[in-house]
């Protein structure tokens, strides 16, 4: 594939109200399968945006690209005004080098569907790993920060347990604390309750509610729990075929969906419940 022409993209976003996250004309494909199709998406600082949509519509891909777990085919993603996987060079953008990527990554945290805790470390060690080895905090500072966060997610008592001794809901709460310990500006949640038993979903969603209430984080969340999305989001984006088919406030999107595909999706989801 030819290197794309990046001259149309600014080297940084400037001015008032620069969005915290901005996808500009982002395309992602695997071979001939186009997964994200010229996506434009802005998320303001402190905003909670939920992504819903049918399986395969590209929801996870949006988060993975933000976390730099996937490469970008076309377009530019800006985080905090700066290009995420590109960097300025002369008067244009070029693919970012490792140090730029690491700098940008430090602004973003992610929680995964299957938690992905490090199994050979205790809950506390999981939380301390990044602060000590990436941020360079002293063990003591990292420990204080981690214990505080474990307390926030209600896992203070279990801090010395390894993940294999924790339930799914408990593991996910530790994973949230671990991501938060890096003090990201943007938090990504990819179906963090999908792998959980129904009775423990609430303990994870309550933690996320708490984060929304108490922290000025920018959040992007993919979920299949429409009720949760409805009462926590500032905005809901309905994805279909790698594009945003419709978006709006939860009241608009759930109460009065305008597009036919949105209506179909929402009624299908309602029936499934």
């Amino acid at each position: 594939m030819n290197a794309q022409d990046l001259s149309a993209f600014p080297m940084a976003l400037q001015g008032d109200n620069v969005p915290m996250v901005s996808f500009k004309n982002v395309t992602k494909s695997y071979g001939s399968l186009v997964v994200l199709d010229a996506l434009d998406l802005d998320v303001a600082e402190g905003e909670m945006v939920t992504i819903i949509g049918p399986s395969g519509s590209g929801k996870t891909t949006v988060l993975r690209m933000l976390m730099t777990l996937e490469t970008i085919n076309e377009g530019v993603i800006y985080v905090d005004g700066e290009p995420l996987t590109h960097m300025p060079n002369g008067n244009g953008l070029v693919p970012a080098n490792r140090s730029h990527l690491r700098k940008m990554r430090s602004k973003i945290g992610m929680c995964f569907q299957h938690f992905n805790l490090f199994p050979h470390m205790t809950a506390l060690e999981n939380c301390m790993e990044g602060p000590v080895h990436v941020l360079g905090l002293s063990k003591k500072e990292a420990r204080e920060r981690s214990e505080e966060l474990l307390a926030l997610v209600g896992m203070a008592e279990k801090r010395d347990q390894h993940p294999s001794r924790l339930s799914g809901g408990q593991q996910q709460r530790v994973a949230i604390a671990r991501a938060m310990a890096m003090r990201p500006k943007v938090m990504l949640f990819d179906e963090v309750t999908s792998a959980l038993d129904p009775e423990v979903i609430g303990e994870v969603t309550n933690v996320i509610r708490k984060l929304v209430a108490e922290h000025n984080l920018t959040m992007l969340m993919v979920t299949h729990q429409m009720g949760f999305a409805k009462d926590i989001s500032d905005r809901v984006c309905f994805f279909y075929g790698g594009r945003i088919e419709e978006q709006g406030t939860p009241d608009e999107l759930f109460g009065n969906p305008r597009r036919e595909r949105t209506q179909q999706f929402l009624s299908a989801v309602k029936e499934a419940v």
Partner: peptide, 11 residues
Amino acid sequence: GQWEAATSLNL
């Protein structure tokens, strides 16, 4: 997922 978690923590 372990590699991805490590990346997400910027290790």
